Simulated scan of single mutants.
Amino acid sequence: MNVCLAPRPVIFDLDGTLIDSVPDIHACVNAVLRLHDIRPLTLDQVRGFVGGGVDLLWQKISGATGLPREAHRDLVASFMTRYHGATNLTRLYPHVTEALGVLADRGYPLGICTNKPLGPTQKVLDHFGIAQLFRVVIGGDSLPQRKPDPAPLRAAFAALGADSEQPRGVYVGDSEFDEECARNTGVPFLLFTRGYRKTPVEQMTHQAAFDDFATLPLLVEEAAAIA
């Protein structure tokens, strides 16, 4: 007797995975730094600080620029007023829309699990016209925990019908935060190599690595078969 299993859920990181948002983040960061007469940071500096959420971003910026710790809350608030709707410089990586469409057409439940705050996350998904493809979106402020803690990813899988403690599905991301989160959650990790990671690919644990979203549907199919 043949048993037809429902497609496994597939959860995606956002920044550095589906979108390159560093140019917008860079512009917003430097707009805040100018208010404090701090020399602007380079694009590469800001890229190196991205991945752990807004609080960690500004902890790293303050450490690099000498901004006082007590200014942290005001810096974050000033940044968020600019960042919430910042989409003009953000771009989807090539073939993202097509790959997501293929996966959705094949019945894979899709979701987002990102350390980006929920408001800007929803804004950018709407901006690119892909919000309707995702049945669940977990942002960096949706839960008390952030990646690499497994709680946000477990919540995303649970919202798509998977067992929250032992989910069977696939996580797609680009960074060390994503790798560790997938490992902590116990799911296969597909590594997009054109994102914001700092570690060489060969030193990261992953089911497969890819640099072109046109190849993703096949990789998901292979990873889901062992999930």
Rank of each mutant, 00 (worst) to 15 (best):
F157C: 10
F128K: 07
D55G: 07
R154H: 12
I19W: 01
F79G: 03
S164P: 12
Q132F: 14
Y108N: 04
L153H: 11
A156G: 12
D149Q: 08
I138D: 07
A159C: 08
K123I: 14
F79E: 02
L125Y: 09
G139P: 06
L41G: 07
L14D: 08
L75C: 10
D24N: 00
V172Q: 05
P117V: 12
F177Q: 01
A131W: 03
D178F: 06
R154W: 11
T193S: 05
P9D: 14
T81L: 07
L14K: 06
A225F: 05
A227E: 05
L100Q: 06
P217K: 14
T90F: 01
D74Y: 01
T97A: 08
E176H: 05
R82S: 04
V76K: 14
Q45Y: 10
A77K: 03
L57N: 15
D212C: 12
L218K: 11
L41F: 13
L67V: 08
L5R: 15
T121P: 10
L110D: 02
A162V: 13
R69S: 12
M1K: 11
Y108G: 02
T90A: 02
A156N: 10
Q207E: 07
E221G: 12
A71H: 13
D212T: 09
G111E: 14
F189I: 05
P120R: 05
E176R: 06
Y108I: 04
P120E: 08
L57G: 13
N2Y: 04
K198V: 01
I19R: 01
T185V: 14
L57C: 10
